[in-house]
Design a protein around this nucleic acid. Structure first.
Lengths: 189, 189
DNA sequence: GTCTATACCGAGATAGAC
DNA sequence: GTCTATCTCGGTATAGAC
């Protein structure tokens, strides 16, 4: 039943998915969903909160040297999204675009659970970490949008390692490069 | 009335926007909308097709040297999105995420109207142009998502020129850099 | 030409029988 | 505990009076 919810939310977003089709897909009654989860909001939380667990995978990606951080982050992203984590991720992204509170969910997930960890390993000042983190996020979200939502070719069909090679350096530059930071001055590491 | 439609589509996406609120916002009757445009689909097309005209601005951005192409593309993107073109763009992006045919619209707009022009000025083989174009698209879409949809700070509040300085080199590298291309081998210009 | 009224559908949620 | 039946609301679209 949670699986049906994940699929529906991933394909149609929070607003587009209906409790009715989720229940039909799971072979149960729509009223049961309310009885178990209380509301559509809580069903959504239950559907995405469970499998969105990069917290276990992140440490491994951060374990390498600081020069491989960019490639490792991209590789982790593709591992999660080319695996079973895609449905939960798509559900979050599709929902966040048209719904304010799901957008908030995604934003806080990105900032608190991902970017802060990645940037944290570099030991940067708070402002600089946020600046670099938001740049990294812009590239990662863009990859997700182009590859999994818009299915823009040839990026959508490229192998993970090709993308790691192409995009990893961009992330690396955002993380440790000598760049102009949004909201700040040029900073070198 | 088209203005009300654009605003509504930009804020809530195609599925989320309703003819009722559009009509109320424009101070007219919902039935009038149908009478003028026939259907919600055609209203959407009329709302976005009109002001989404980067075709006039693109040549100017492409006029500079090949080494400034990355910065110029980012600068153009921010000019359009920080100006009145934002509503039309947001309408297209918000709608494309949850709706297959609007996604198709955005994809074809991106490929045919933008990427092909940009990459075309470099005189690349078709496959290489598409590969580089999709990489560029991934970064540009990511900026749009982070800055205008998710409002991720500090990127959302950064000045355009700060972003040109930070992100321009990424686009430049995707366009003319010595990189591994998705679906191809290493290529140098 | 414009708008009132409404048809028709599907959404989320709830009450209450079994 | 499970499901039938139903409530209320809001969506698109249409028919027909002024």
């Amino acid at each position: 039943m949670l699986a049906a919810a994940r699929t529906a939310f991933a394909e149609r977003g929070f607003d587009g998915a209906s409790i009715r089709v989720i229940a039909a897909d799971a072979g149960v009654d729509p009223a049961l969903v309310h009885h178990y989860f209380g509301s559509k909001d809580k069903l959504f939380l239950a559907a995405i909160e469970a499998p969105a667990d990069p917290e276990e995978l992140l440490p491994a990606a951060l374990a390498g040297g600081r020069d491989e951080l960019g490639a490792n982050v991209v590789r982790l992203l593709l591992q999660v999204w080319d695996g079973p984590g895609r449905t939960a991720g798509l559900a979050l992204v599709r929902s966040a675009v048209n719904n304010e509170w799901t957008a908030r969910l995604l934003r806080e997930f990105l900032v608190a659970k991902v970017l802060r960890r990645v940037v944290g390993t570099l030991g940067l000042p708070k402002a600089e970490g946020e600046a670099r983190g938001s740049l990294v996020a812009s590239q990662l979200i863009g990859v997700v949008m182009a590859r999994y939502v818009l299915r823009l070719e040839p990026l959508a069909s490229a192998s993970p390692e090709e993308l790691v090679a192409a995009i990893g350096p961009t992330v690396q530059r955002y993380l440790t490069g000598d760049i102009v930071l949004p909201g700040g001055a040029v900073t070198a590491l």
